[in-house]
């Protein structure tokens, strides 16, 4: 390989962008050629000098500024919550509300069912009990017939049976 051809490839040689065959040929040439070795050294030094220009850090509020600009661009008047917070809330609050709603409905249905069961249990009576209840009710009705003498009830029945009330 000639010096001119080697020097054209020194940049890619430094950047490790050559395939193995060409790289080997250049290395072979460099072992024998002082001038090309010197050129490589200078280019290497130049490229290494660039490293003194260090990277800079972004300002702390870079992201906050960015989201603010996004909101401004979208023309939103109300400030939106931070996306991260909003996303987290969405992930937690919506499923939690859905679960709470399901439990509330289930609780309500259980309450209605149990309430009905208890009511029926309390109001359920045996045939003997129901007979005694009927008798008791009849007894009350019969008691209306035996109004004491001079009571308003007795006077009313007497008047009704004599036909005075009908005439009036």
């Amino acid at each position: 390989m000639r010096c001119l051809k080697v020097r054209k490839k020194l940049s890619a040689f430094i950047d490790n962008e050559l395939d193995e065959t060409i790289r080997a040929k250049i290395e072979e040439h460099l072992r024998e050629c002082f001038s090309c070795r010197h050129e490589l050294m200078l280019l290497n030094q130049t490229w290494e000098v660039l490293e003194i220009w260090e990277k800079i850090e972004l300002s702390e509020n870079f992201e906050a500024k960015f989201w603010q600009r996004v909101r401004e661009k979208a023309g939103e008047k109300e400030p939106l919550p931070q996306p991260r917070l909003f996303q987290r809330l969405t992930k937690i609050v919506i499923p939690a509300s859905a679960i709470a709603l399901i439990f509330s409905v289930l609780g309500l249905l259980c309450g209605i069912y149990l309430g009905n069961m208890l009511y029926l249990k309390e109001t359920k009576v045996s045939p003997e009990d129901s007979l005694s209840l009927i008798k008791e009710e009849l007894l009350y009705l019969e008691s209306f017939e035996n109004f004491p003498r001079e009571s308003i009830g007795n006077i009313y029945i007497s008047l009704a049976s004599s036909g005075v009330l009908k005439k009036e």
Binding site: A12, I14, E17, L42, T46, V49
Partner: peptide
């Protein structure tokens, strides 16, 4: 490749 070769030469 050509751009970087020339850039290195210029910087050198």
């Amino acid at each position: 490749d050509s751009l970087l070769h020339r850039a290195k030469q210029n910087l050198k």
